[in-house]
Each structure stands twice: as structure tokens, then as C-alpha cells.
Amino acid sequence: MSGAVPWNEARAQEIIDAHLGLEGPALPILHAIQEEFGYVPEAVVPQMAQSLNISRAEMHGVVTFYHDFRHAPAGRHVLKLCRAESCQSMGSEKIAKDFLERIKLEWGGTANDGSLTVEAVYCLGLCAHSPGALYDGEPIGRVDGEILDELASEAQKS
């Protein structure tokens, strides 16, 4: 997403150090790293392992367990489409499938121009307004093809 800065080891260390006083700091650090750099770079794994006094393997295991930590930067905008049951009851699967076909992307894919990443998510708590979505963190209810097309073209412009 926009606002991310290039990888910088010293800055990463600052972020790690700022959280070391917490009980169980790994997730807060990883969130802060992703917030700063837009993803969790491979290079931060040994660095965190060192600071948290755990093995690299263990640290790698933590990073890779959670769906939300990216291993590569996302597009400038991120669209999360809900695929859970409530949204399925309102036809979300077809809406999403048609949309992905139109923009020639697969789940988790990023457009060639880097404008948009589309990800699956399982429940956003917008179940009375299914299908639901999050666009750059902003919730959207009653999603349909038209709304998605608008978002995709909006993403290209900014």
C-alpha cells in the first residue's frame, strides 16, 4: 500500500527495539514492520530471531503461519473480498469470480501495473450487508460487479 518505505535494517531494528518490553512482542513487531515497509522482508527474520532470542526457524515459522503477513509488497491498493458463508448466501463467489476474470487476476494476485492486489478474506463482520469487502481498510457492503469495477479503475488512477 502507498506510504511504505524501502527496506532499511537500522529502521527495522528501531521498530524491534521499541517493542521488546511487551509480553510476547512478535506479532506487534511484525505488524509494525509491515506497516512501515509494506511487507515482512525475509531479512527481518534473522534480525528478529536475534533480538527475541529464538531460532531463525522458529521466527520463520511465526511469520509464515499468519495469512496477513506479506512476503512481497502488495499493489498500491488492496481489496479484500469476503468469501465466507454469509457472503456466499448473497452470491459473492460468482461476483468475485467474474470480477477476477474481467481484471485477469487470481486470488492473491496483483495487477501488472501494480495498482491493485485482490485477496480473499473470511468474514469481515459485515454479514447483514453481504457481500462485504475492505478496500484499503475501508469497509464496503452489498458489493456487486459495478462497485468492484469502479474500485479497480479508481485504483489505477491513484
Binding site: E23, G24, P25, A26, L27, P28, L30, H31, L52, E58, V62, F65, Y66, H67, D68, F69, V121, Y122
Partner: peptide, 21 residues
């Protein structure tokens, strides 16, 4: 804040996650 793992709603998994595992 969690990180997108449904299973972390299970209490022992949640505790593991909270501890940073």
C-alpha cells in the same frame, strides 16, 4: 491485533499467538 488466522479464535491457539508463537 491478530493476523488473519481463524484458528486463533480457539483459546489455546490465541494464547500461543499472544505469546508470539
Amino acid at each position: 491485533i491478530g493476523a488473519g488466522a481463524y484458528v486463533c479464535g480457539e483459546e489455546t491457539s490465541l494464547l500461543e499467538s499472544l505469546e508470539g508463537h
